[in-house]
Design a protein around this nucleic acid. Structure first.
Length: 680
DNA sequence: TATACGATTATTTTT
DNA sequence: TAATCGTATA
């Protein structure tokens, strides 16, 4: 029997309610993962088969945490393995692996990341004379993504209702459908397709829907406030038979609206799933009372939300420290100074500290200040390992080995390292596709002999490359992936090429180091997994690009630098919320309206990351695009009651104030004289 | 095919 | 400002 004794009454209710739709409104730090994990244990104890339980979250991190905590509660590892604990996207892949051929896709498929998406879109645009100058590919891609998230096909788009997606609907329709066709030819899907296509399949093939909706008797969705329309439809399909759907989320932490997530999914859950019960978890176990109080006051100003207020048993704790610095460099230096002082006064490890900001660019000043003081830090976000050029190039070879129809990957490496296949050759190859002679780029290469326009040397180069692929495909049968990759790099003489390509020997060296890290990562993967394969490896890295550093990194002792978005779901004993200025939080650019409610939620997320100590800093002036800009304090600062805060630099503050007063007196003196003179 | 130059353009981005 | 990108040019 699962012990429910150490849960609070609401948590207990949530665990024990297992029949019919259930909405758990879980405030920040209210123990929601705990509830999910207990609920899974309880369902198993009730006799639900593990195979019939599905729990979905957004991030791999959240899924891993769920796995770990379930495992420590349920001692039987074979039982845990039978549960489906997965991200939305890996669930999508799981479904597509079985069902995608129904939509006339090839049996295998690859997943294209945003840079692949952009490459493929730009290609179809240039082939169809859509001018990039008038139609920025990035904007079109964003619009296509939004359309997919709304579960709209190209044909569904009409100007009158969808002009917000993109100003020119005809162009959007055209680009979207060309893009779709191109993806299909490549045997590729994008991230949005991982949600959209399963729904399409469920809608068109009742037997597919039948299989999947019968399978899961119990479904739990985490971070429900971040779901978009397509995800809602997917959930709706999966839960359509058993209707045992439990969603967990917090409308106040919905911060991905700009990516298509729709707060109304959680706000109107009971309309979508009639008879739903709602349970609110309002006791916060994370923050000190002052911090929680401030968070409550800030978020209360939002209109579009469930009316609720979190409470805590915790002590008030120290007040929130405020400081205003002259510019961003001083802000960073001051932050590091404070951090250092607290660390030593309270004997804290570095990992207790996090610096939270709105935009990645803000991290720079803090990195510099931390480096100067030789403080270990970890920058979360930015370019990931798998986005590095040399890594992408190598993986492109592996991807073509795995799926020859992957044209984007093939084009990426067809002349890298250079093998004298220039643009003209590539154009000639593409032409044969357009006139229908061949139906894939790879196939055109295979028939290079028959393409008259090619020069003999180009023909040879192409056939040599294909031979290399054939050779390695053959080797792949008996060689393990890590060895195969190394052999490939040697065959390509890529290390030698990198030395030639980068004049700066350090850069060449660092790229080579990265490649050997890749080999290491593959070896690690081979050790960790039961049945390693190229197929499986490629899928993993496209769905979990941070996996290489996640497992061991967490144990290291360092300060964390992270954006507010990235910090959601995390907590730190000491938090510095920096750049608290109008324009950053709420973020907006001149001439554009900020989405104040969403920005306020972001601010709320930031405040509620702090367990014991919170500091909020701002700068008076900031260099932006080469100009110095004066900055006003964030309007959200005014919503934090004065009695919860104190000014860290009281001395400096007083000085500044007295200067200001002197200034004022000076001015009024002058205006008096002025008026006197005028009278006379 | 490498380099150089001028234009462009600066959020957040779980997957 | 600075980093990126596309085009021009050798």
């Amino acid at each position: 029997m699962v012990s429910v004794a150490h849960l609070n009454p609401e948590q207990r209710d949530a665990v024990l309610h297992t029949h019919g739709p259930l909405l758990i409104l879980a405030g920040a730090g209210s123990g929601k993962t705990r509830v999910i994990v207990h609920r899974i244990a309880h369902l198993l104890a009730q006799g639900h088969p593990a195979e019939a339980i599905l729990a979905v979250s957004f991030t791999n991190r959240a899924v891993r945490e769920m796995e770990e905590r379930v495992s420590s509660m349920i001692k039987d590892p074979t039982l845990v393995k039978k549960l489906t604990l997965s991200t939305f996207h890996s669930l999508g892949v799981k479904i597509l692996r079985k069902e995608l051929s129904r939509l006339h896709y090839p049996q295998r498929f690859t997943i294209y990341d945003p840079s692949d998406q952009l490459a493929i879109l730009r290609r179809v645009m240039s082939e169809n004379r859509i001018d990039e100058a008038f139609h920025p590919p990035k904007d079109l891609l964003a619009a296509i993504s939004q359309a997919k998230n709304l579960f709209l096909d190209p044909n569904d788009l009409v100007h009158t209702t969808h002009h917000a997606l993109y100003p020119n609907i005809m162009v959007l329709k055209k680009a979207y459908s060309l893009y779709e066709d191109a993806l299909r030819v490549c045997g590729a899907v994008d991230f949005d397709d991982l949600i959209r296509l399963p729904v399409k399949i469920f809608r068109s093939f009742p037997d597919a829907l039948h299989t999947w909706s019968n399978r899961f008797q119990q479904i739990m969705i985490d971070e429900y406030q971040d779901t978009n329309r397509a995800q809602l439809l997917m959930v709706d399909c999966l839960a359509s038979v058993h209707k045992n759907l439990c969603v967990v989320g917090d409308d106040d932490q919905s911060i991905y609206g700009w990516r298509g997530s729709d707060v109304s999914n959680i706000l109107h859950f009971d309309k979508q799933f009639p008879g739903a019960r709602t349970i609110m978890l309002t006791q916060n176990y994370r923050c000190s009372a002052h911090i929680l109080d401030a968070a409550n006051k800030v978020i209360a100003k939002n209109q579009n939300r469930y009316d609720k207020s979190l409470w805590t048993d915790a002590l008030p704790g120290p007040r929130i420290g405020l400081a205003t610095l002259p510019d961003e460099e001083k802000e960073a230096r001051y932050t590091v100074e404070q951090l250092f002082e607290i660390k030593h006064a309270e004997k804290r490890p570095w990992r207790d500290f996090a610096i939270l900001y709105r935009t990645n660019a803000q991290s720079q000043a803090f990195e510099e200040a931390l480096r100067q003081e030789r403080i270990p830090y970890k920058l979360v976000g930015g370019q990931t390992f798998f986005e590095r050029k040399e890594i992408k190039d190598t993986l492109a070879y592996l991807k073509v080995l795995h799926l020859p129809s992957d044209e984007i990957s093939l084009r990426r490496i067809i002349n890298y390292p250079p093998r004298s296949i220039g643009n003209t050759t590539i154009d000639h190859l593409s032409e044969t596709l357009r006139d229908g002679r061949f139906n894939s780029f790879y196939q055109a290469c295979e028939h290079a002999e028959q393409i008259e326009t090619l020069t003999p040397s180009a023909r040879k180069a192409i056939l040599d490359l294909l031979q290399l692929f054939d050779l390695f495909r053959l080797r792949a049968q008996r060689t393990k992936l890590s060895t195969l990759t190394l052999e490939l790099l040697q065959e390509l003489r890529l290390f030698q090429h990198l030395h030639r390509e980068y004049k700066n020997p350090n850069e060449a060296k660092s790229r080579i180091d990265n490649l050997s890290s890749l080999i290491n990562a593959i070896e690690q993967y081979e050790r960790r997994v039961d049945h390693p394969s190229l197929d499986d490896y490629l899928e993993r890295i496209s769905l979990d690009s941070h996996s290489e550093d996640d497992d061991r990194e967490t144990e290291k002792d360092h300060v964390t630098l992270i954006t507010l978005h990235g910090a959601k779901g995390l907590e730190y004993p000491v938090v510095f919320l920096v750049g608290m200025e109008d324009g950053f939080l709420p973020f907006y650019r001149q001439g554009e309206e900020p989405d104040v409610e969403e920005e306020r939620r972001l601010c709320y997320v930031g405040i509620t990351r702090a367990k014991q100590r919170l500091y909020i800093f701002r700068a008076l002036e900031r260099r932006r695009f080469g100009r110095n800009l004066e900055r006003d304090p964030s309007r959200f600062l005014a919503d934090i009651p004065k009695e919860l805060t104190f000014f860290l630099q009281a001395e400096q503050q007083r000085q500044a104030q007295s200067e200001e007063e002197r200034d004022k007196k000076f001015k009024s003196f002058f205006s008096e004289i002025h008026s006197l003179l005028n009278k006379s």
